[in-house]
Amino acid sequence: MIIGSALALVWGLAVGEENNQPAGAVPAVQKPVIDEANPGPDVLTREYCSACHSFQLVQAQRLNRATWEWVMEDMVEQFGAGWITPPEQTVIIDYLVEHYGPEK
C-alpha cells in the first residue's frame, strides 16, 4: 500500500471583494493526488480531510450522519473542498459515521 501523496498547491485568487475582503492571494488547497488505483474509504477520508487542517480535528468529533453531512456541506461549499465529488462525499460520510459517530 503506497501513497506518494503529493499535494499540489496553487496560490490563486480565491476570494473576491465582497464583504469588504481585502483583495489578495488566498491559498487554494487543491485535491490531494492519491497514487493508488482504488483508494479505500480510510485513505480517501484521511487524505482529503487533512489537506487543510489536522486530521485530529476530524478524529475528535462524535457526530451523527446528519451532522457529518452538514460538516461536509460546509467544507465543500464554503471552505474550498469543492473538489470532493458527490460519490466521494458519500463514501467519506459513511466512513465518518462508522468511525467517528456518536458513542454507543
Partner: peptide, 30 residues
C-alpha cells in the same frame, strides 16, 4: 478507530506524528 491506518503508516516508516500532520507534516504545504 482505525488500526489499519496505523499499520499502513508503520509500513511506510512514517511516525504517527507525521500522519497526524498529514501532508503538512511531510513538507508539502507552504
Amino acid at each position: 478507530h482505525s488500526g489499519a491506518w496505523l499499520a499502513f503508516l508503520t509500513a511506510c516508516g512514517a511516525g504517527a506524528d507525521a500522519a497526524l500532520k498529514g501532508l503538512v507534516g511531510r513538507g508539502l504545504l507552504p
